[in-house]
Design a protein around this nucleic acid. Structure first.
Lengths: 209, 209
DNA sequence: CGATAGTAGAGAGTATCGCTATCCATTCAG
DNA sequence: CTGAATGGATAGCGATACTCTCTACTATCG
């Protein structure tokens, strides 16, 4: 197919497709002449993936580029690559309070997890600890153990999901999709659950105050 | 204190504070003369809250403005206000596939939750469903039940946290902080749990392929 | 064969966002 | 009294994610 049909089928405007081609987040089509190229279904899928990462995941074009570069580079160390993708999906703060990071590491060990201190997510969590204290909500940190337990369930679901795939590139795509869409889904489900729980406790038939 | 000390104590640059005052996300200080004002600890706290919402929560200044307007408007219907804040923290897509929304509503009913169909989070989740199918990952939807169960645990933790506070404004601040920082914390914990679970399954001593 | 529409590619332009810099008149502090 | 700081307003800046415009083709239909 040519660019017009790619645009029609993916729902992405032609100039935007050209922009993505320039940015290297959409691989070029197969050239048929010096200024003609042909695209296929893989381009439609890739475009939808890109849109999902940007719109639902809130990722920047640059972040999408980095992640797709990892996905597209073939390798055989699944564990390591999953780490790379997972880390690529976290924007790691550069400066963190070491004491807060110590607390995070303590939680990680307490949970029996095997993560390194320099995992971007650990640094990100340390930032949350620092921020919670700064805005005078230190009690928030007390609930982290239960959060972590819930996340264990979630992570098992995630890994089960990824285990369904065969082929390293499909697995990696699964990680990306699972992480990005999963984050959106979890944020939404959490709010729905909060609303439900709030209703249960302080519902219209039993208002507080 | 005056603006210079407010800046020093909050870590926010003076021009930025002026910008926030203009945007109405930081209440004006107490006027001591036609062009002098005095600020206090509440301003320091508010500034840190704003920074946390923008930096950690990734919220826009406009979204922060709307949320703080809700927090600052006194009312007595706790359940309703929590809903408003919670909804304000979700950027609701305007157009969603009704069939996908039907599925979300079915899940909500299945969980025994009491949420309305037009809850922004429900619409947001419907978008995830649609996107998952479009990028050819429909299996992701199958895991939603387990996600929802995990979110129930999380929501109970959240509501327990909020229940600690007395005073409607402090409760609302708790909701905001819990939602914004909680989302960041959960995203980080999820990735740490994933890394740990991945290690357990495909760890360095037992690589796949 | 020619007219028309479509295409690739590149550079410039646009809109938005979140600040940041510069003024100015006023005011406070030593 | 004088220099630094303040409140307030306006304009500018840098990043981001497109979007427009232009050129030089190419495809296709009549």
């Amino acid at each position: 197919m040519r660019i017009a049909e790619l645009s029609r089928r993916s729902g992405v405007a032609v100039p935007t497709i050209k922009f993505y081609l320039r940015e290297g987040i959409l691989p070029p089509g197969e050239r048929t002449s010096p200024n003609q190229a042909r695209y296929d279904d893989s381009h439609v899928r890739r475009l939808r993936l890109v849109r999902a990462m940007i719109e639902l995941g809130g990722l920047s074009v640059a972040a999408v580029h980095d992640i797709l570069a990892t996905v597209d580079s073939p390798t055989d160390d699944l564990d390591k690559l999953m780490g790379t993708v997972s880390k690529g999906l976290t924007q790691a703060p550069e400066e963190v309070d070491e004491a807060a990071l110590d607390e995070v590491v303590a939680l990680i060990e307490d949970m029996g997890w095997t993560c390194t201190r320099d995992h971007p997510a650990a640094r990100s969590l340390a930032m949350v600890y620092t921020a919670a204290r700064e805005i005078d909500h230190p009690q928030l940190i007390a609930g982290m153990r239960r959060y972590a337990e819930a996340c264990e369930v979630i992570a098992r679901t995630d890994l089960d999901y990824v285990a369904n795939f065969t082929g390293i590139d499909r697995v990696l795509e699964g990680v990306v999709v699972g992480t990005v869409l999963g984050d959106s889904a979890l944020a939404a489900l959490r709010k729905l659950a909060q609303t439900a729980e709030s209703h249960r406790r302080y519902g219209p038939d039993d208002p507080v105050e």
